Computed example of a mutant assay.
Amino acid sequence: MTLEEQKILDDLTSPACFLDMTLSLVYANESAQMELPQLCVNGELARRINSNNVMKSAMVRRQSTNLLLDDVPLTYRLLSATPLGGGYLVTFSSSCQQDYPERLCEIAREPLSEILASLPLLSQHLQAGDGDTQLRRVNRACYQNLRSISLLSHFAQLGRGGFQEVPVDFGALLADLCQAFNSLANPDVPQLIFQVPKHPIIVACEPELLAVMIENLISNSLRYTRDGNTVTLSLIQLSGRVLLRVKDTGAGIRPEVLPHIFESYFSAGVYADDVPPGLGLGLTFVHLLATLMGGSVTVESEYGEGTCVAVALPLADCEEETEPPLNNFLADFMANRYSSLFVQLCAFCRLPEI
């Protein structure tokens, strides 16, 4: 553990630890020693990580990952592990025993905000090369954690059945998102092929929720990928409905997994190289949002050949003379460093510079 890495932990007001590659505890900051003494002794932290197959596998692959601690007195603390130098930076959210998961999402952002705010300062004190590479990894890992928190927050919102029915041009939103992603995608990520009608396709929902729905469908197509994969999104207007189809030629879904894909926190455990596992809420969120809007979701997949997800949504009841509000989605996706595109698709696009 370097002095720079120790300084990162000491500067955090939230509990934080540093583990070596064997998951042995190397250092715990003052907050961790005071608030979580039971995790700072006798290899307890390593035991918890090793008991969770998804988390252990992600850390072996040097990927960012999360674990929800739900036992007393650690009730509803989110443990986040981020590769750093020759080990792992492990941070903990504040304790949350009420208003779960809304309160958990709020307090889980605290350590991430501190880390993200410190990165530009750290970049001034680290040498170019390896130092820059480490900072970029930490930055990407923070985005991955933000993705989990954001998705959990949106899922909680839908669990309460609440969203505003705002008229949104679904076709314009889809085209803007795909265009922005193609401009920002990593070089090894397939470009999205998209087809939308020229006339407005109006549905009633919050634009951000619709964007998160589309982004999760894209993420799944890219997450379960293979060489030569193509991802095609098309929007077709039917009688009183619009059909969004997201088709890929990726790895496909195993037959025994297919019946479980809409279950909360379910993950099939097959990912593209260097892509961390998700939270297991992506398709659950898509299904729940479509259902609340009065629509439906169907999935067809052939293992080893590809998958097609079809989302049918009702068109909004708008009078002919009523014009939908104009929204510059494309500018927000590309200019806002914490837009849903960067957060939800952080594993596949070039993140803003630190």
Rank of each mutant, 00 (worst) to 15 (best):
T2A: 05
K7V: 09
D10S: 03
L12T: 05
L12P: 02
C17V: 11
L25P: 00
Y27P: 00
Q33C: 08
Q33N: 09
Q38D: 04
C40A: 02
V41H: 10
G43V: 06
L45T: 04
A46S: 03
R48P: 00
I49V: 01
N50D: 04
S57L: 07
A58C: 01
T65Y: 12
D71E: 15
D71K: 07
R77P: 04
T82D: 05
G87L: 01
L89H: 03
V90N: 00
F92H: 01
F92G: 00
C96S: 13
Q97G: 10
Y100H: 10
E102G: 04
A108G: 03
R109L: 12
S113F: 07
S113I: 04
S113Q: 06
L119M: 01
L119V: 04
S123F: 12
Q124V: 14
Q124K: 14
H125K: 10
G131M: 02
G131I: 03
T133A: 10
N139Y: 14
N139D: 05
N145G: 07
S148G: 12
L151D: 01
A156C: 02
L158F: 10
G159H: 05
R160E: 09
E165Y: 12
F170P: 00
A172K: 06
L174C: 11
A175C: 05
D176F: 07
D176L: 05
C178H: 03
C178T: 02
Q179S: 09
N186L: 13
N186W: 13
N186H: 14
N186K: 13
P187W: 10
P190L: 05
F194M: 02
P197Y: 01
K198V: 08
H199S: 13
C205Q: 00
C205M: 01
E215N: 02
S219D: 13
N220S: 08
S221A: 15
S221W: 13
R223S: 14
R223Q: 15
D227N: 12
D227M: 15
D227F: 13
N229V: 07
T232V: 08
L235A: 06
L238G: 14
L238D: 14
L238N: 13
R241H: 15
V242W: 05
K247Q: 15
T249W: 04
T249N: 02
I253N: 01
E256D: 13
P259E: 01
E263T: 03
F266E: 06
D273I: 14
L283R: 04
T284E: 04
L288A: 15
G295M: 02
T298E: 11
V299Q: 03
E302L: 13
D317S: 10
C318R: 08
E319I: 08
L326D: 08
N327S: 15
L330I: 06
L330A: 10
D332H: 15
F333H: 05
A335M: 13
S340I: 11
L345G: 03
L345Q: 11
L345P: 06
C346Q: 09
A347R: 06
E353G: 08
E353A: 06
